[in-house]
Design a protein around this nucleic acid. Structure first.
Length: 659
RNA sequence: GCCGAUGUAGCUCAGUCGGUUAGAGCAGGGGAAUCAUAAUCCCAAGGUCGUAGGUUCAAGUCCCACCGUCGGCACCA
């Protein structure tokens, strides 16, 4: 293993505020960085923001801002979040910084000199309304744009291409022969993807301006992936001393951007003549859709409650370490996971407070009362089978847990720490130090027992330091210790590590909060998705008001046939998080209509049955695939997670015209 | 449709090269103890390992089919 470690997160697109998914990736990166630092490696952790592109240009224009000002505003929200989470990147790069722009242009020229970039024409099916290209597969029958249901046109545009096709074989070899892509399932997908053939990649645009100018051809801006991906490299280039970190040890990505990081990116690097990252690890999603329902038949079960996923709010209520613990311990790294606040609390209570914290709390009083606040020594003559077992197990856990971290199985590494803490509690119970403390004759034996328990606490706290840095330091502090991570010194325990005899302990308040029923109820109330923002005044999203639409004549309005309808039934559309399939009675002889509506994030199907809604009745049918066709549209407003459907304050016959 | 992954206790997950009565934590049940934030410890219960076949002395593990779930099938980040 190299003695340097370099971890990156994706650079986040600044078209919105950070959410729990960003927090997740970044917390994992931070923990990995801390783990490797603890092992004495020279470690570096990079995150940042991706700030170019049409979306930013437009969004900024809609607010009457300059793109850079808009991007800065959002970039600052990301930057401000990390300290709240105990996340400490070594560098934060923005794609709008001079160092990055210069770097991208340099690497562009390098690839061009290599013969891998050429000017050509991109021919595609263009939807004027979307201002974007469509693939044939996503078009509706008759070649209509799926969004606007209007014909697309074939359009040709001048663009620079990257000779991606040239790297097909090299990529396949890379995928097949190394663990470049993890986990396995992503690797298989990418092998299948590359096997079906790679076309050259369009890497410039002329349709917008907010980007890095192509060297020597300022009509073009560098397309987002050639721009963004190079951040991992350009961030190291200002200081020659940082060259040692290249290539990245591991690059974390969410599974939606695996292809860009495992196909395009290594191809760019091969072209640029740079060594490739060792691993690109794709983690899963944190799901928060609250689609959980009781599985107990016959029982409705408690209604699913959805909780906030705003990271700042969560941290405000729970604290950074509790949230970090959950993200690193409960989520199987690589798998999707349901993010549920009650689970966060349950983990923290059972594992941190009651198992690890309590082991510390129940031990320190003996040191204070019996040994005058100084850690007792071990009397080897008084050690028996139980002690040997504890020591052996501690060594095994330390070694195995470290190994699991190295292979991105930190969730299991943490579980081993818990196992050791439980063993400590068992040992404590069987040795019953409170009995030994009653007789002066047992003093040496008591000291030996206490010293062993403290060793367990120390070892566990040290191994949890990458996960819960503040709490781990607090535990070690009560033991009179400090965690020192410095380069060249492996501070990860290789065995059960005793606290030196005579160390002066510093007992204090319990390190972990007690989540009793009352505290839990309060927390849950404060973290409900619709709880008033009083709990933590995390800046609420400024309500966005859509730009006014051009004036129309009354006759134009009259073309829209709005009707009142009664919802007869509603069900989720499988695999489509946002969609509900409704059966709506419009009083028509032909019977109720099927209407598909993108309101599933805000409404449960059963909540809509019987409701009277406003329907655009003469809208052309829209095909959602798999035989699902929508005949009309519901009127609604608001953000998609909390929108409201239009309705009236009194009932009318289905089919009544709305005007 | 094609390709891939996955299905183990109520929940979340382990289960190595096929090898004894399939494991852990949490939740629920019973008990012990009183050092500790009522925190701990012990015991019992809980499984047709998705279904049906096959290979084998032996299958959770290997093979085939089917079912369920999730994902991938390029310029959309």
């Amino acid at each position: 293993m190299r003695d340097t470690f370099y971890v990156t997160t994706p650079i986040y697109y600044v078209n919105g505020a950070p959410h729990i998914g960003h927090a997740y990736t970044t917390v994992v990166a931070d923990a990995l960085r801390r783990f490797h630092s603890l092992r004495g490696r020279r470690a570096r952790f990079l995150t940042g923001t991706d700030e170019h592109g049409l979306k930013i240009e437009r969004e900024a224009a809609a607010r009457g801002m300059k793109p850079l000002d808009f991007a800065t505003e959002n970039a600052d929200r990301f930057r401000a979040l990390w300290p709240l989470l105990g996340v400490a990147p070594d560098d934060f790069i923005r794609t709008t910084e001079a160092r990055h722009i210069a770097g991208v242009q340099k690497w562009w020229q390098t690839c061009a000199a290599r013969g891998d970039i050429y000017l050509g024409r991109y021919k595609g099916l263009y939807c004027v309304a979307c201002e974007g290209y469509k693939t044939e597969k996503e078009l509706l029958d008759g070649g209509l744009c799926p969004v606007h249901e209007r014909p697309v046109e074939t359009l040709e545009e001048e663009t620079y291409f990257f000779r991606l096709s040239k790297y097909q074989d090299a990529l396949l070899k890379l995928f097949r022969e190394t663990s470049f892509i993890q986990p396995e399932t992503r690797r298989n997908e990418m092998i299948a993807f590359v096997e079906q053939g790679l076309e050259d990649l369009s890497i410039s645009r002329t349709s917008f301006e907010w980007g890095i100018k192509v060297p020597g051809d300022p009509r073009h801006v560098v397309y987002v992936w050639f721009d963004a991906l190079f951040n991992y490299r350009t961030a190291l280039e200002a200081d020659p001393a940082l060259e040692a970190f290249w290539p990245p040890t591991v690059q974390l990505v969410a599974k939606d951007i695996v292809r860009f990081h495992t196909v395009y990116w290594p191809a760019f690097l091969m072209s640029a003549g740079l060594p490739l990252p060792e691993t690109v690890f794709s983690h899963g999603y944190l799901l928060s859709a609250g689609r959980k329902t009781s599985k107990t038949p016959g029982q409705g079960g408690p209604a699913a409650v959805s909780y906030t996923t705003n990271p700042a709010k969560l941290v405000g209520a729970l604290g950074a370490d509790v949230l970090r613990y959950y993200l690193l311990r409960d989520v199987v790294f690589g798998n999707d996971s349901e993010f549920q606040v009650p689970n966060v609390i349950a983990r923290a209570r059972a594992e941190l407070a009651e198992t690890v914290g309590n082991l510390l709390n129940r031990t320190l009083p003996f040191v204070t009362r019996v040994f005058d606040g100084r850690v007792p020594s071990v009397d080897a003559a008084l050690c028996g089978e139980r002690e040997a077992e504890l020591v052996a197990h501690g060594a095994k856990v330390a070694v195995d847990s470290g190994a699991l971290w190295e292979t991105f199985a930190h969730h299991r590494a943490i579980e081993l720490c818990l196992e050791l803490a439980r063993l400590g509690n068992q040992y404590f119970d069987t040795q019953a130090p409170w009995k030994l403390a009653k007789s002066e004759a047992d003093r040496a034996r008591l000291g030996t027992v206490i010293a062993h328990v403290l060793a367990v606490v120390r070892t566990v706290a040290t191994m949890l330091a990458p996960v819960i840095p503040v709490k781990a330091a607090a535990m070690l502090g009560q033991l009179g210790l400090q965690l020192e991570a410095r380069e060249g010194h492996d501070a990860w325990p290789a065995a059960l590590t005793f606290v030196p005899a005579d160390t002066v302990i510093a007992p204090g308040e319990p390190v972990f909060l007690k989540y009793d029923a009352k505290t839990e109820a309060e927390l849950l109330a404060a973290l409900k998705a619709d709880a008033p923002a009083v709990a933590t005044p995390a800046a609420p999203e400024a309500p966005k008001v859509d730009a006014p639409v051009a004036e129309i004549a009354f006759d134009d309005f009259a073309k829209v046939d709005l009707r009142l309808g009664t919802v007869l039934s509603a069900e989720k559309v499988p695999k489509k998080d946002m969609l509900l399939k409704l059966s709506v009675d419009l009083g028509e002889a032909a019977g109720p209509r099927t209407i598909v509506s993108g309101i599933a994030l805000a409404y449960k199907p059963e909540a809509l049955v019987g409701k009277q809604v406003v329907v655009v009745a003469n809208l052309a049918p829209r095909d959602f695939g798999k035989g699902l066709v929508s005949h009309g549209m519901l009127l609604a407003c608001g953000p998609k997670e909390s929108l409201g459907v239009a309705t009236f304050d009194r009932a009318f016959a289905p089919g009544t015209r709305v005007k």
